[in-house]
């Protein structure tokens, strides 16, 4: 649980920073505003949708932090046997990076108002993400073919669980991406799609970072490293 607490501490620090901007020390009972003095509310100038995405990402971070905590706790039992990570995962990682790059490209294009390029970036990003998911499925299949079934070992179970949940999040992102692409299709102005494209790009970068963390954890040497650390500590 220490990993979870650590990440919650980070989230807490962000919340504390935000709270410190909210004049918590003020004495509202003494402060009646004057008529013309319409004060700001302390809300951030960022659009609500961006704040919403930020809060959602905090939830997803907590979710995966808990899974990773569980992963490390379960790893300590004797029956743990790390399985080799399929080579294919490297290729898939490449696909996801390219997908992220494509969305970044779309975002920049949206800022500059080049709608053609936005459409291109979105489509390329979406297709690459789909390819990534197909690659992940293929990796599952390879593992199954080699006899690394879900239920044979907790290490395998975690592998399928973590990659599966990551994939589901990406799937959700694809829905948002499709909706955004649809807006571009219908010929909306750059101003009306800029935000959606930006949010998609942020979410994609987030999922990429998350995947890299998971990929690192799922490769065998992390298991060895964790064992060494534990031996050093005890």
């Amino acid at each position: 649980m220490s990993i979870t607490l650590l990440l919650l501490a980070v989230i807490g620090a962000i919340a504390a920073w935000w709270l410190s901007q909210q004049r918590l020390m003020s004495k509202p009972w003494l402060e009646v505003g004057a008529i013309d003095d319409v004060r700001g509310t302390g809300a951030s100038p960022v659009p609500a949708a961006t704040v919403g995405l930020g809060v959602f990402l905090a939830v997803v971070v907590t979710l995966f932090a808990l899974l990773i905590s569980a992963y490390f706790m379960r790893m300590q039992t004797a029956d743990w046997a790390q399985m080799p990570a399929p080579k294919l995962l490297w290729f898939n990682t490449g696909l996801l990076i390219l997908s992220s790059v494509a969305l970044q490209y779309a975002q920049v294009a949206a800022r500059r108002g080049r709608m053609e390029d936005v459409a291109g970036g979105l489509v390329a990003g979406g297709l690459l993400a789909l390819a990534f998911m197909a690659g992940q499925l293929l990796a599952w299949q390879q593992l199954n073919a080699e006899g690394y079934f879900l239920a044979t070992n907790p290490a395998n179970a975690f592998f399928y669980l973590l990659t599966g949940l990551h994939g589901l999040h990406l799937l959700g992102g694809l829905v948002a991406l499709a909706l955004t692409a649809d807006k571009v299709w219908r010929g909306l102005e750059p101003g009306q799609v800029r935000l959606s494209v930006r949010l998609c790009a942020i979410y994609w970068h987030f999922l990429l970072a998350l995947w890299i963390v998971l990929f690192t954890l799922l490769t065998p040497w992390v298991g060895d490293f964790a064992t060494i650390c534990r031996q050093l500590l005890t």
Partner: peptide, 22 residues
Amino acid sequence: TMGGLNYVVTVLQARTRGMTMM
């Protein structure tokens, strides 16, 4: 979670003029 995002972000971003957190 869908509802929760709404409650939080509404409090954060949709307060009317003069409605500070405090």
